[in-house]
Amino acid sequence: MQHLEFALADAQTQRPSPWSDIELVHCALPELALDDVHLGVTALGAQLAAPVVIAGMTGGHPRAEELNRRLARAAQRHGVAMGVGSQRAALERPELAATYSVAREAAPDTVLIANLGIGQVLQAGPDAERMLRACVEMIDADAIAVHLNATEEVVQPEGDHDFAGATAALAAAARALHPLPVIAKETGSGLAPGVVDRLVEAGMSALDVGGRGGTSFAAIEGARAAQIGDDVRARLGDLLADWGIPTPVTTATAARGGVPVIAAGGVRTGVDAAKALALGATMVGVGQPVLQAAVEDPHGAERWLEGFLFELRATMFLTGSCDVAALRRAPRVVLGATRQWLDQLEAAEGR
């Protein structure tokens, strides 16, 4: 519950949005009608009406049940995918399962993504497959995300600090759960090219890059630490509030890995989404703004998504792109710090 409150209190990274470094080139002669722009994509073994995932954010406390119901209704209405928050709470307290399973009740046709942390997978050892399958069964999921949250954990007063064997654990999960898609999901610090290579080799079905630019879990954990008088971790949370690889950078580099990429981290508008798709993302993840809309009004998430998808369609129209595949071929300009990031990463890789 604390995490939700801090996220809604706008615990965002403080630097300017990295999406401002990406410019899409205007096409004065689109040669298509706005209504002809098609947002549909095939992802995670299903057809989606639009390339959007409502990010896994909440569950495990009484307030979450209604919020997940509202988010799921929005996903169902607009034909997009949805994740739930970490299901660790319900594994430890089965009476909380309804705060997650409500998503399937409200969205019988939606692609749902279960969610468990790499820390729990590692701690479970040989019992990890059973735990992961329990998460999937809890919400009748179509895929499962294993979230990678080292930045959050190192600040969190009660955090897990041992990630040894994480790559092998992910590979074992992918083998055990096959053919169910297993997604590696960063939570705000991005995926470096070398990490992308390791995740692809481990058999991940998709990568949720979770880059810097949106909600800062280091800042959230720092604020929680401050509340209990842990000055050391509160200071660390401040220092690491802007830690990580900007979302446009990690999106562009991860897109070369050969598996579907979900661009998440600071995607606030349909224009941001179009930029992410132009950089090679298969889908975009949206979090804080749609959650805020759901909190404020029972149908707020549905209305927010409607506007977001209209912004995306309009931006695609203005680039002359009839679908997502065409948008990936549309000209774009990369400026500022993002250009420097990409140039230096490419130089380091010898590209």
Score class of each variant (00 low, 15 high):
residue 241 A to K: 10
residue 241 A to D: 06
residue 242 D to V: 10
residue 242 D to K: 06
residue 243 W to S: 14
residue 243 W to L: 15
residue 244 G to R: 07
residue 245 I to P: 06
residue 247 T to I: 04
residue 250 T to L: 02
residue 252 A to Q: 13
residue 253 T to K: 13
residue 254 A to H: 03
residue 255 A to S: 15
residue 256 R to F: 02
residue 257 G to C: 09
residue 257 G to W: 02
residue 257 G to K: 07
residue 260 P to F: 09
residue 262 I to T: 09
residue 263 A to G: 06
residue 263 A to W: 00
residue 264 A to K: 00
residue 265 G to V: 07
residue 265 G to K: 04
residue 265 G to P: 02
residue 265 G to T: 10
residue 266 G to D: 08
residue 266 G to V: 10
residue 267 V to E: 11
residue 267 V to N: 08
residue 267 V to F: 02
residue 270 G to Q: 06
residue 271 V to T: 15
residue 274 A to M: 05
residue 275 K to C: 10
residue 275 K to A: 12
residue 276 A to F: 01
residue 277 L to I: 15
residue 278 A to R: 00
residue 278 A to C: 13
residue 279 L to P: 08
residue 279 L to K: 09
residue 280 G to P: 02
residue 280 G to H: 03
residue 281 A to D: 12
residue 282 T to R: 05
residue 282 T to W: 00
residue 283 M to Y: 05
residue 283 M to E: 14
residue 283 M to K: 04
residue 284 V to W: 01
residue 285 G to C: 03
residue 288 Q to L: 15
residue 288 Q to N: 14
residue 288 Q to M: 15
residue 289 P to W: 10
residue 296 E to I: 05
residue 296 E to L: 13
residue 299 H to K: 13
residue 300 G to W: 08
residue 300 G to Q: 11
residue 304 W to E: 12
residue 305 L to E: 09
residue 307 G to D: 09
residue 308 F to T: 12
residue 308 F to C: 11
residue 309 L to T: 11
residue 310 F to P: 01
residue 310 F to Y: 12
residue 311 E to Y: 02
residue 312 L to F: 09
residue 317 F to S: 02
residue 319 T to R: 01
residue 319 T to V: 06
residue 320 G to Y: 00
residue 320 G to F: 00
residue 321 S to A: 15
residue 321 S to E: 01
residue 322 C to W: 06
residue 325 A to C: 08
residue 326 A to I: 02
residue 326 A to K: 00
residue 326 A to R: 01
residue 328 R to L: 08
residue 329 R to S: 14
residue 330 A to H: 02
residue 330 A to L: 03
residue 331 P to Y: 02
residue 331 P to K: 01
residue 332 R to M: 13
residue 334 V to E: 06
residue 334 V to G: 03
residue 335 L to W: 09
residue 336 G to H: 04
residue 337 A to G: 07
